[in-house]
């Protein structure tokens, strides 16, 4: 029996896997399972996992988790509560969300949010601290004394 990779032109194969990846990117907040995703690519489940992993270096499930954690960071940065963030990115349980977030990011969601807000406040208060001096000087920004006052 010939494999899909032999049967179809390669670009067609890539388009289908990419389509599935983009499907995960847009539908991460829904209750996705492998059946949904492999249907999107029109592959059998196991063939799909193998191809996905060979292209992206991780299984579709691991990739979905990664997308959810990245989106969670984005929501936390936008001042969403941890509970809202958890459900917005497709988790059912705050405990499992918090545990997975900490395992991946190294901080709990609330710690991550606090640190992010702190850094944003510092950037607003003293932007020059975050700009390499050589660039600030070259652009003439370092001479602007009111930078420290801008909010």
């Amino acid at each position: 029996m010939t494999s899909a990779a032999q049967t179809y032109p390669k670009f067609y194969l890539y388009s289908r896997i990419v389509k599935a990846k983009l499907f995960i990117d847009s539908n991460y907040h829904q209750n996705l399972d492998l059946e949904n995703i492999s249907d999107e690519a029109s592959f059998s489940k196991f063939h799909f996992i193998r191809l996905f992993k060979s292209i992206y270096g991780k299984t579709p499930h691991h990739y979905l988790t990664q997308v959810r954690i990245e989106k969670a960071k984005h929501f936390l940065q936008s001042n969403c509560t941890v509970t809202d963030t958890c459900f917005k990115v497709g988790f059912d349980s705050i405990t499992s969300f918090t545990g997975l977030f900490k395992k991946t990011v190294g901080k709990t969601p609330s710690e991550y949010q606090q640190l992010y807000c702190l850094r944003q406040d510092q950037i607003k208060a003293q932007p020059l601290r975050f700009i390499p001096g050589c660039f600030a000087s070259q652009k003439g920004w370092a001479e602007k004394s009111n930078f420290e006052e801008v909010r």
């Binding site: 670009f11 890539y14 896997i17 990419v18 990846k21 983009l22 060979s54 292209i55 992206y56 270096g57």
Partner: peptide, 13 residues
């Protein structure tokens, strides 16, 4: 990138 064909398809999309 890890896979040029896949990255090309995605970026094009």
């Amino acid at each position: 990138c890890n896979d040029l064909n896949a990255t090309y398809e995605e970026m094009k999309a």
